[in-house]
Amino acid sequence: MRERTVKKNALKVLAAVAVVAAGGVALSPAASASTASSPCPHNQICVFENAGFHGGYKFYHRGTNVSTFNTLEQVFSNRVLTNDKISSIVNNTNRWITFYSEAGFKGRYLRVAPHAYVKDLDSYHFNDVISSLDG
């Protein structure tokens, strides 16, 4: 029921375009709006265990920083640890969000623009490698 409500109230999101920049990847909104609706509530950063916004999920408020996903508090809705298990992302906030391949905001990074999403992190060689979040 909650998932149905979340989907019903979700905003439409913009398609993402990759831009390689300084050792990381930045995703910005495309010129035209996507007709796909987001499974992520307004002002939330949502991470999903599987591509296509499937599997376990975890939502974070805008401005949240997670120095490591390798803790017992950082689990998906299905109780699976989120560290190195994130496969799709929705940034339904008005700020850029940065995900890092290493704990402590280090390593390769992926920047996701406001109101953008990544349906499959594998297409950016970032599937199952995320260890920290600067929201």
Rank of each mutant, 00 (worst) to 15 (best):
D128V: 07
V66E: 02
S38D: 07
G24R: 04
T98C: 14
A18I: 04
L110H: 03
N78T: 13
G135W: 01
A36P: 07
A21K: 15
A51K: 12
F59D: 08
A103W: 00
F99K: 01
Y57F: 15
Y60S: 05
K12Y: 09
H115T: 06
S67A: 11
G52S: 10
N50W: 07
V25T: 15
E3L: 14
F53E: 01
A30Q: 15
V112T: 05
E102R: 07
R111E: 11
L121F: 11
F48D: 00
F53H: 05
T98W: 06
V112R: 03
F105N: 09
H61S: 14
V118Y: 09
Y100G: 12
W96F: 13
S32H: 04
K58E: 10
Q44P: 00
S88E: 01
T82M: 15
D122G: 13
K8W: 12
F105M: 10
G24F: 05
S132P: 10
D122A: 14
R95A: 06
N78W: 14
E49S: 09
K85D: 07
A16L: 12
A31Q: 12
A36L: 15
S28R: 07
D120N: 12
S87M: 04
L81P: 00
K7N: 08
V19S: 14
T5A: 12
N92E: 05
H42I: 10
D122T: 09
E102M: 10
V118W: 10
Q74D: 03
R2G: 06
M1W: 13
K7V: 04
R62W: 00
L133E: 03
W96L: 14
D128S: 07
L14E: 11
R4T: 08
D134K: 08
L133A: 05
P41Q: 04
T35V: 12
P29A: 09
A21H: 13
S28C: 05
P29S: 05
L72S: 15
A33W: 06
N65F: 08
C46W: 01
P29R: 13
A51T: 12
G135C: 04
L133S: 07
Q74S: 02
A18F: 04
V25L: 14
R95K: 06
E3R: 07
